[in-house]
Simulated scan of single mutants.
Amino acid sequence: MTDLDEIDFGLLKALSRDANQSAGALGRALGLSQPATWRRIKRLQELGILLGRRLDLDREKLGFGVTVFLGVKLGTKGRVSLEDFERAVCAIPEVQTVEHVLGLYDYRLRVTARDIADFERVLRRRVMLLPGVGSVDANVLLSEERRPGPLG
């Protein structure tokens, strides 16, 4: 692990709450000058700790009212490589995240759709036709209360 001090952790916590804050505002909150804050941000980026800034969209206001988590168990691991499955699933625009996991399923997918009928279309015409898919289990997201980062 890279040596980080309390100011680095404070900077990461502040950015995880609001990545749009200016270096000047962040510096004032942490007792640093704007140039010193920029140097720390640049260092965190160079170390690969700060990977980027993310735009958080309101999916519902954009017309995507359904989020479903899929557990995918591959049925033909010997004939289809994991890379083939990953390449194909990443090409589906409704699939927001692809996580290779250990446990009951091989992959966990986050799928966003306009409504249940749209999700069914994605499931039948895209996900079920992916190379190597054996079984799929679905969990519909009812609400999302908090999304804490690794720093709390």
Results as ranks from 00 to 15, higher is better:
residue 88 A to I: 08
residue 37 T to D: 07
residue 25 A to R: 07
residue 20 N to V: 14
residue 119 F to G: 03
residue 98 V to C: 08
residue 117 A to G: 08
residue 128 M to T: 08
residue 30 L to P: 01
residue 146 R to N: 03
residue 142 L to T: 13
residue 69 F to K: 14
residue 39 R to S: 09
residue 6 E to S: 14
residue 17 R to S: 12
residue 12 L to W: 10
residue 42 K to G: 14
residue 133 V to A: 06
residue 24 G to Q: 03
residue 116 I to C: 11
residue 32 L to F: 01
residue 152 G to R: 09
residue 112 T to A: 02
residue 106 D to K: 09
residue 72 V to R: 11
residue 88 A to F: 03
residue 85 F to A: 06
residue 87 R to C: 06
residue 32 L to M: 05
residue 123 L to G: 03
residue 70 L to M: 04
residue 8 D to H: 02
residue 98 V to G: 00
residue 57 L to V: 03
residue 76 T to P: 06
residue 90 C to G: 11
residue 59 R to S: 11
residue 29 A to L: 15
residue 82 L to I: 10
residue 126 R to E: 06
residue 88 A to C: 10
residue 36 A to L: 04
residue 130 L to H: 07
residue 32 L to T: 04
residue 44 L to E: 07
residue 120 E to W: 10
residue 150 P to E: 12
residue 59 R to L: 08
residue 58 D to C: 12
residue 58 D to Q: 08
residue 57 L to H: 04
residue 48 G to Q: 13
residue 21 Q to W: 12
residue 11 L to V: 09
residue 51 L to M: 15
residue 98 V to Y: 11
residue 120 E to R: 14
residue 151 L to C: 12
residue 95 V to W: 02
residue 124 R to K: 04
residue 113 A to K: 02
residue 10 G to A: 13
residue 152 G to F: 07
residue 33 S to M: 00
residue 58 D to L: 06
residue 58 D to H: 03
residue 99 E to M: 10
residue 42 K to E: 15
residue 81 S to I: 05
residue 45 Q to L: 15
residue 61 K to T: 06
residue 32 L to P: 01
residue 127 V to L: 04
residue 102 L to P: 01
residue 49 I to M: 14
residue 53 R to C: 01
residue 45 Q to A: 15
residue 103 G to F: 11
residue 116 I to K: 12
residue 107 Y to C: 05
residue 132 G to F: 04
residue 36 A to F: 01
residue 95 V to P: 09
residue 15 L to C: 12
residue 11 L to S: 05
residue 43 R to V: 15
residue 51 L to T: 15
residue 132 G to T: 08
residue 105 Y to I: 12
residue 11 L to D: 06
residue 13 K to L: 13
residue 29 A to I: 06
residue 18 D to W: 10
residue 137 D to N: 15
residue 94 E to G: 09
residue 35 P to L: 10
residue 98 V to N: 00
residue 85 F to N: 00
residue 10 G to T: 00
residue 122 V to M: 03
residue 33 S to G: 13
residue 14 A to M: 02
residue 57 L to N: 02
residue 32 L to E: 04
residue 94 E to I: 04
residue 61 K to N: 01
residue 29 A to F: 14
residue 125 R to F: 03
residue 131 P to T: 04
residue 106 D to V: 02
residue 103 G to S: 01
residue 62 L to Q: 00
residue 6 E to F: 10
residue 52 G to C: 07
residue 27 G to I: 00
residue 2 T to H: 10
residue 77 K to C: 00
residue 62 L to W: 05
residue 40 R to W: 02
residue 79 R to A: 11
residue 97 T to S: 05
residue 17 R to W: 06
residue 60 E to Y: 07
